[in-house]
Amino acid sequence: MTNRSHYYLQINDLAHARGTDSSLSYSGAGPNDLAAALQEALRSPLLFQRWRVMQPDPDSVDERLGITDQLATVTAKVADLHTEVSVISDLPMSILRQRLNWLIGASWQLHDVRPA
């Protein structure tokens, strides 16, 4: 049995939400682009691998930081003046936080987590 969680996030200014390193950062134009980028970052090891090779000693990076969830789903929509993001995954919050920070920096807020 997996521990799937439903994460509810909010981004106040998606147009300016970018990670600190442009080679890892989200570069889309709207909620659907962000949802696709985050879903790919959760399902595939590619973003982690790009980050890993940028580290001073890539071989010393803990491989567990690169875990993925092939069944992760992400949706995003504009609501009022912000973007609401819904993530369903069995990845721990620490991994979701890592991928979000690479993609959009600290431009997001977690509002709720519930069992999926």
Rank of each mutant, 00 (worst) to 15 (best):
A41D: 04
S5A: 00
S23R: 15
A76C: 14
L81E: 14
V61Q: 07
V74F: 13
S23W: 08
V85I: 05
A37M: 11
T73Q: 15
S25M: 05
L9D: 03
S22D: 14
L42W: 07
T75I: 01
I95C: 02
Q10G: 10
D90H: 08
M1N: 13
R64D: 15
Y26V: 07
L38Y: 03
A41E: 11
S22V: 09
D80R: 10
I88Q: 08
D13H: 15
A116S: 05
S89R: 02
T20R: 15
H6G: 03
Q98E: 06
L103R: 03
D112W: 02
P92D: 04
L81R: 11
W51P: 05
L103P: 11
V78E: 10
S107A: 10
D59M: 10
L96N: 06
G19R: 14
A72N: 09
A37K: 08
V85A: 01
R52E: 06
L14H: 07
Q39L: 02
V53D: 04
S94Y: 10
A116R: 00
V61C: 07
V53H: 01
P31F: 04
A36V: 02
E63S: 15
R43Q: 15
L100W: 06
W108C: 00
P115N: 05
I88R: 01
T68N: 08
A41Q: 07
R114F: 01
T2W: 03
T2I: 04
L42F: 10
D62L: 11
S23M: 10
M93I: 10
